[in-house]
């Protein structure tokens, strides 16, 4: 079982090396706004999450995933659906 908390913790680990602005990472931290990540970096990050949990996060979902918390929800949901 992979619960939401485990997913969140791992997402933070995946983001850390890309957090060039060294902003504090919380549920509400945004990728484009707070972390100033460009779209390519975000897409690469998503690819690493897909591989981490063997899930698929289509690019067209990204506009709705602005904060780390929203991404954690989405990933946890996809992982749960996979069973």
């Amino acid at each position: 079982m992979t619960d939401r908390a485990t997913v969140y913790a791992r997402i933070i680990e995946l983001i850390e090396p890309l957090n060039l602005k060294k902003v504090a990472l919380t549920e509400a931290t945004t990728f484009a706004g707070d972390m100033e990540m460009d779209s390519l970096t975000v897409m690469d990050l998503v690819a690493s999450m897909e591989d981490e949990w063997d899930i698929m996060i289509p690019l067209n979902m990204l506009p709705d995933l602005e904060t780390i918390g929203q991404v954690a929800d989405a990933v946890a949901g996809l992982v749960a659906k996979k069973g």
Binding site: A47, M56, L59, N60
Partner: peptide, 13 residues
């Protein structure tokens, strides 16, 4: 074109 379509978009390395 991907943005304009209603499909799900998957990107590979």
């Amino acid at each position: 074109g991907c943005k304009m379509s209603n499909a799900d978009i998957v990107r590979f390395r």
